[in-house]
């Protein structure tokens, strides 16, 4: 089933990436570039599949209709930037040396990152089960990263970029500040040092998970039903997280794939409503600016807020915004 993707990635590596690396005098990366080719090909497949599934859904039962949907365009850019491999390339270039130094240092200390299989030997020979367990643990870790990004003012200043979108669609999943992405990358690296990296031989499973994350942002009236809502994150569930009244320090539904952590830590909101999205405290550039304008606005906001308690600053900026009004705490469970 994966053969066409693998063939395409191999072709890309052999006929495009290697000649390019050779010409640039960068052949030491030839092994890594193949991993990148696979990432890019599967990422493109993710985008195509997500489009094929979410586009009809958004036409079928949209939550909102916008006469002018220009603000969506930049989200498409974010998606390609992130899924087709440019973002991983940036983090790789920025952090390769740091990772080598960290790996070398840990090896010197005698630390060999274990795998879940070594910690739980019953997983040996059960790669799919192992993969699922990694998904659960990484999703749990991501719940806390996301939740903390709403706790610290400077961090939320970056994350506000994700929340600022008032025209939320399936393209909005990858709409993140570059620094926020880098923190997420560091967060993942730290977890990987404790439990190792997940098995990577299931690109189709990864594809389905990414599809679910995109779907959860789609502009569609879609709930998974009483049980389904408690098993997987639905568009309705994640929309509540993006609600204008839930943005900022105290939101709900932080989970990306599994709603379990929200249920466990009492941040879940299962009310059957489809709220308008956006962050009333965010300046307009974060919502409708160009890619560069959004990144710059996020950085500026972080530098401004750093040190000051979040509620002070955000409540002050909220005054006079039409949808604002410090209603945030209502959604806190």
């Amino acid at each position: 089933m994966t053969a066409p993707f693998d063939t395409l990635a191999g072709w890309l590596q052999e006929h495009a990436l290697l000649p390019l690396l050779y010409a640039l005098g960068l052949m030491q990366w030839e092994d890594i570039s193949f991993g990148w080719a696979l990432f890019a090909v599967y990422g493109a497949a993710q985008v195509v599949l997500t489009f094929a599934i979410c586009m009809p859904l958004e036409h079928w039962r949209p939550v909102e209709r916008w006469p002018d949907a220009r603000a969506v365009t930049v989200d498409i850019l974010y998606t390609f930037f992130s899924r087709v491999g440019l973002l991983p390339l940036v983090t790789f270039v920025l952090f390769y040396q740091a990772q080598v130094a960290l790996n070398g240092f840990l090896a010197d200390q005698g630390w060999v990152p274990p795998t879940l299989e070594r910690l739980f030997p019953f997983l040996l020979g059960r790669p799919v089960l192992t993969f699922c367990l990694y998904v659960v643990i990484l999703d749990f870790s991501d719940y806390w990263r996301h939740r903390l990004s709403h706790v610290f003012g400077w961090w939320y200043a970056l994350h506000a970029l994700h929340h600022a979108q008032r025209q939320m669609t399936f393209w909005s999943d990858d709409r993140n500040h570059l620094l926020d992405e880098i923190i997420a990358f560091a967060w993942f690296t730290a977890v990987a040092l404790l439990i190792g990296i997940p098995p990577m031989q299931f690109p189709l499973l990864v594809l389905l998970l990414r599809l679910l994350e995109s779907l959860s942002h789609a502009n569609v009236r879609l709930s998974f039903g009483w049980i389904g809502e408690r098993l997987l994150v639905s568009p309705r569930f994640h929309r509540a997280h993006h609600g204008t009244t839930a943005s900022g320090r105290q939101s709900v539904n932080y989970g990306a794939i599994l709603p379990w952590w929200d249920m466990l830590f009492r941040t879940a909101d299962f009310s059957p409503t489809y709220v308008p999205t956006g962050d009333p405290t965010a300046e307009e550039a974060l919502a409708t600016g160009s890619y560069a304008a959004q990144q710059w606005a996020g950085l500026r906001r972080m530098l401004r807020i750093r040190g000051a308690p979040l509620n002070d600053v955000t409540l002050r900026t909220q005054v006079g915004t039409p949808e604002g009004g410090g209603r945030y705490n209502l959604k806190q469970v």
Binding site: L106, V112, P113, P114, T115, E117, R118
Partner: peptide, 23 residues
């Protein structure tokens, strides 16, 4: 990626032992 050496029987390829080794 798993930071380990697998010691196999070179004839049957049955796994005999795993040795944790960095990278």
């Amino acid at each position: 990626g798993a930071n380990e050496l697998l010691l196999l029987d070179p004839s049957s390829f049955e796994l005999r032992r795993r040795v944790p080794v960095a990278d």
